[in-house]
Each structure stands twice: as C-alpha cells, then as structure tokens.
Design a protein around this nucleic acid. Structure first.
Lengths: 207, 207, 207, 207
DNA sequence: AATGAATGAGACTTCATTCAT
DNA sequence: CATGAATGAAGTCTCATTCAT
C-alpha cells in the first residue's frame, strides 16, 4: 500500500514505530473503554493516553470507529487463539466430553478480558459494529451444528438447527453472565458451573 | 394554592395537556431509540419528534436520563402487566407445566416491544440505568428460586441458587435471542421453541 | 388607567388584591436577590416565591427589569422615609453637628437592608438601572452643596462643588463599606465610626 | 515527549500562536465587558471578537469564569506594575508627602483602564471572583496601617486600624469615583483633587 | 384577571476531525 | 510523518416571555 522506502533499515524502523503507535492507540482505547466507559473515550483522550498526538491517531485510523473496530478485531483474535486448539479437540470427543470442553472453553474465552468483552458487546453504539461482535456466535453456532450432525446417531432426534441454537445460546449466556457477574470466584465454583451447564446441554441432547 | 375552579373541565384540561406532552415525549424517546439508536436521541430531536419544544421537555424531565428512565419504567410496567397474572398461575403448577408457562410468558414479554427491549437492555447501561433494567431479572430469579424450593422434592438434589441461575439465564437468553433475531416467525416456530426450552430446563431439573 | 368598575366594593377588593400581588412579587424579588443572588432570580422563581403564577407577574410587570426597578423604587422610598426628617434638621445645625447628623443618617440608611442595597448597587446589570440607584447620591450631593453654601462663612475658602464631592463621596464610602463589611458590630463601634468620619469631614472643611 | 525540532523558530511558532490566541481571548473579554456589559459577554461572542472559535476558547480556559479570572489577573498585574515602585517611595516619606503620593498613585491606577476596573469591581462579584478583586484593597489597607504605625509619633493618637480604614476607604472612593465620573478632565483638575484628598487625609491624621 | 403549559432563542460546553507548522 | 492548535457542528439545558384555557 505504501511505496517501498529506499533503505531497509529505515523502513523497518518506521514500520516498527508505526506498529508501536497503532498498538498503543488500540491499547489506550481498550483501557479507557474499560476504566472510564464509552463516553470518556474521546479521540483526544485516547491519543493522550497512548502518548501520541491526535494527528497521529488520524494518521493510522480514519475515524474513531475504525479504532474501535481494530480493538474488536484484536480482542477477537485473542479469543480465537485461546479457543481454536481446544475446539479442534472437542470436535473429536464424544458428546459429554465435547460439551464439557465447549463450556470450559467458553468460560476461558469470556475470562480473557471480561470487562472489555462486555463493553464491546453491549456498550458500543452499534453502527455496523454489531455484526463484528456477532461473527463469533455465528461461527460458534455453525461449528456446533456441524458437530451435532457428526454425532447425530448419538443424540435424540431433533431439528439440529434449533438444537444448536438452544445449546449455543444457553452456553454463551451462562458463561457470559457467570463471568461478568463474578459468579466464578473459585475453581470449585467454575467446576460447578461447568458441571451444571454440561448437564443442562447433555441432558437436553440425549434424553 | 389555586382556588377550585368553577367547572371541572377546565381544571382537567390542563392536566390532560400536561399528560399528553409527557406521553408524547416518552413515546418519541422510544421511537428514536428504536429507529435511530441512542446516539441520535438528542433532547432537541426528542422534543421535535414529540411535537413540543425543548423547553417543555425540560419542564417535565430534569435531564435526558430522566426521560430514558421514564421510558424504562413505562416498558417495565407494560411487561409486568402482561406477565403478572400468568406467573401467579405458574407458581401452583407442577414442574413441567410451570416451566412451559414461564417460557411462554418470557416470549410474550419479549414480544411486547422487542427492539425497545433490546435497546433498553443493551444500549442503555451507559446512562446508568443498568440497575433498573436488571431489577427484572433479579425478581425473576428470586421467584424461580422460591418456586424450586417449593418443589424441592420433585426435582433432583441440587444447589437451588445455582439451578435457578442456570434456568433463568437460559430461558431469558433463549427467548430474548429468539425474539430479537426473528426466530419466531410462526406459532409453530414458537411452539417448537417452547418445547425445546421446556425440555432443556425440565430435563436439567429432573434427571 | 383602568376603567372604573361598577361597584366600589369590588373595585377596592380587586385593588387590594392587585396591590397584595404586586407587593408579594416585589418582596419575593428582594428575598431571592438577597438570599440567592441575581442568577437565581428568574421570573418563574420569583412568581413561585410570591405565590402567584408567572402569568400574573407579567400582568403587573412588563418585564423582569420592571420588577427590579420597582424594587429599587421601594427601597429608595424606604430610605427616603428614614432619612428625610433627620436631614431637614441637619440643614439648620452648625457644621459639626450637621456633619455628625449626616454621617449618622447615612449609616442608618445603609443599615435598612444592607444586602439589598449591595445587590441593587453592585450586582444588578445596569441597563439604565444605574441612574436610579445613583439618584440618591446626586440628591445627597446637591443637598450638601446647598448646605455648604449656606455656611460658606463658617468654612475655609474652597470650591464648594469639589468639597461637596469630597465629603459626600467619603461619607458614602465609609458608611457603605462599614455596614457591608460588618465593621459596625456595636453601638460603640458605630459611635467610633461616626466620630472619625465627622472629624475627617469637619477637619477638612474647617482647617 | 516531542523530540526537539531542528530549528527553534518552528517550536516557538506554535507557542506564539497559543499565546496570541490566549491574549486575544482575554482582550476580547475585556472589550466586551467594557463595551457591552457582562450579560453580553457570552463565550461565543468572546471567541468571535477574539477571532477564534469557541473550541479554542475552551482549549485554554475551562470555563467562562476562568476567562474573567484571567482578565482580572491581567488587570491586577498591570496595576501592580504601575503602583509598585511609587508605593515603595511613599513608605519612606513624611506623612503629607506620603499621602499625596498615595492619592496620586491611586488615581494613576484607576486611570489604567477605568471602565474595566469598574466592571471588574462592581459587576463581577456574581462570578465569585470577588475575593480576587478585593485582594488589592486588603493589601492597600495593610500597607497603609503599617505606614501609620511607623509614623505613629507624627500623627495624633488614634486606633490605627480604624484610621487606616477611614483613609484607605476614602482615598479609594474619591479616586475611583473621580476617574469614573470624568471629574479629572485636566491636570489642573487632577491636582485639585490630589490637593483636596491629601488635605482631607492629612488633616484627619494630624489634628 | 389568573393560571401554568408552552415556547424557542441562546448560553455553555464537548469532541471528532482538519491542517498549518 | 508528527504535532497540537484550531475548528465548528451539535448537544444539553435555562429562562424571559407568550398564550390558550
């Protein structure tokens, strides 16, 4: 996109610096959003916290929304990294194990940065941002449906789409709410929640 | 302070006018919130849509937040009226019937004004009205826990608090998401959802 | 100005009521100005404190300024009533006695309602109101000059206009400041002030 | 935070620009206050007259009051610069010379910007800046009292506090009123006033 | 006349964005 | 590229005044 500079060193230097600036800005956005709420997250404030000038902010992000979008992407990325491997495992496990894994992973994901997750999910004026946040659930939903299909003979006869909706929505809600409302104060509490959620879903799918 | 007027009509006339203005303002707030989002809901805009002047808005509501609070109260009131009677019935029914009723009522409640509900639930926290919106879930939760206690011998041994959390959170999420994402396009679809949700919860409580 | 009503009683009744309303409004204005400052003295507030409607306020006063003007007039009237008699006496007294009297009267006048005086003199946006407040000093000045002329042979040779300015300004400032800044806490303190002021002025006029 | 620029001018450029903006705003405030009164001094108007945007105003002054406070400080500073040197001299002079000096300096100070002084002194209390404006008189008073103490044996026996109050208040009122009401149209008139005021005060202190 | 609801200009202030340096 | 001063539209809220009842 940018033309190649004449010397490599300079190029890398500036690329690094750019990268650092971009990171600082996204990080500042996250911090302010979490600690002070959306209303305090003005571009000037973000730039200040990031330690750069507003001008620089607009050098890298065409608008405030672009900044928030980048933050969402970053968070999604982090969640993906945490979730990906474990989810792959689950796919090959029998129903109960798979569900248990799913629940555990969901909790793990929500715990990455619960407040940020909350802010991104519920506090950001949506202006097209909504879809970005929802992408995950869609993926989750599709993955789950695929899994159910692969295990169709182990579970009772159901509309798999409907079942996937029920399961994914429930797991998401339970883990999200539990994490956000500090219901998971100990490993015990977490295990209890995992047990119950698993029982809820497995019982639903099997009986 | 004012002496009684000679005719009733006159006195009531002004009261009606006030009332109409207040109603128009709250209604305008709802419409704008739903159609254009929180950010577009400026006091000037609300007044304009309500067909009154900003001055009138501030005659009745000390701040923009007060307006939103009034809207929340109005919505809560409507929901309560729909829910109340049916919930009383459920309390005396056996588990499966009670849960089915609960789910049905939740759908009914969410259908009153789904978009408004969504906006109030997910977009308003910024206004600090969070607690007002959450009051409902708390009440719902407490009621459910009480019910579980009264039927303790019909369900499996379980931490009732945890169980209530699991059930209420799931029902709320399922009905909310279903209504909001237009998953309930027909009575059939609705009945299917009720069946599944009921099965989910009852299976969880019983087995 | 108003057409005569058909019956006297009614006439008087309504006149009394009007008078009472007008008085209440002026009084309310004074109270608010003193207790809460000019910025809080909105017409709506004044009407409320007066126990009448804004509409009535505008029935009797064409504008907020008119109200303030009426208040100034009322205060001036009160001051006049206190001052008048004593001032007449002073005119016939020899210089020292006259000056002493003048100072004493000035204190008395300032003590009528010091805060109101202060507010009216220094806190009211002037818009032509200034002259009304200043009228007094002018009268005072003219009167003093006349007195000096009548006693020209008892005092040293001097530009009487200039001398009157010096004396009136000094007496006014001393009594105003003393009263306003609570320098007159006792009769002793007052007498001390009177002594000093008198000495100041008499010394100036005589030597 | 910012790296040193290669050339000085550039750095100073922005500082100068800021400074110029700030100065223009304070100056505009003064002009409007003088020419149109406090009520017309809206922030938008001030910015307009200063030739900058409202935004810039709020970049440098957190509120309208801050602007007025800055103006008061500026004026005080100017007065101080005029007064300081001359006052130091007076302290070492014999009574008559000292008083004459004091009066002359007071006139000089009041002449710096009489209308502004008036506005700041009598119109601003509403902004709560009263103390700032009064600081001066307090200093003046303290200084005068100290002087009287140092010359105690040259003047008649008096309560020095009371005497200082009488003298300072009188000088202040005379010079203030004279300047404001255009009583000082010529050097002659000024000298006459100085003579009279000096005589007033000296006569009071000595006899 | 009295009432008080309604009006709307305008005040203060914020903040996303631009642009000269 | 970075900087940060400058911009100005837009938002919240107040208050003198009008007007239907």
């Amino acid at each position: 996109m940018a033309r190649k500079p004449l010397t490599n060193p300079r190029k890398y230097a500036s690329q690094d610096r750019s990268r650092a600036t971009v990171d600082a800005l996204v990080e500042a956005t996250a911090r302010i959003l979490i600690r002070e709420g959306f209303d305090k997250a003005s571009t000037n404030r973000i730039a200040e916290v990031a330690g750069v000038s507003v001008g620089s902010l607009y050098q890298y992000f065409p608008s405030k929304e672009a900044l928030v979008a980048a933050l969402i992407d970053r968070h999604n990325q982090e969640v993906r990294q945490v979730v990906q491997g474990e989810l792959a495992e689950a796919v090959n496990a029998p129903v109960e194990q798979a569900v248990r894994k799913l629940v555990a992973v969901a909790i793990k994901a929500h715990r990455i940065d619960p407040k940020l997750h909350y802010v991104l999910a519920e506090q950001i004026p949506r202006v097209g941002r909504l879809e970005k946040v929802e992408t995950f659930n869609r993926e989750y939903y599709a993955l789950f449906k695929d899994y159910l299909e692969s295990r169709r003979d182990e579970i009772r006869a159901v509309d798999l789409g409907l079942a996937a909706f029920v399961c994914v929505t429930s797991i998401e809600a339970l883990t999200h709410t539990a994490v956000l409302h500090h219901k998971i104060v100990s490993d015990e509490a977490m295990n209890a929640l995992i047990d119950e959620a698993t029982r809820l879903i497995v019982g639903y799918l099997m009986n």
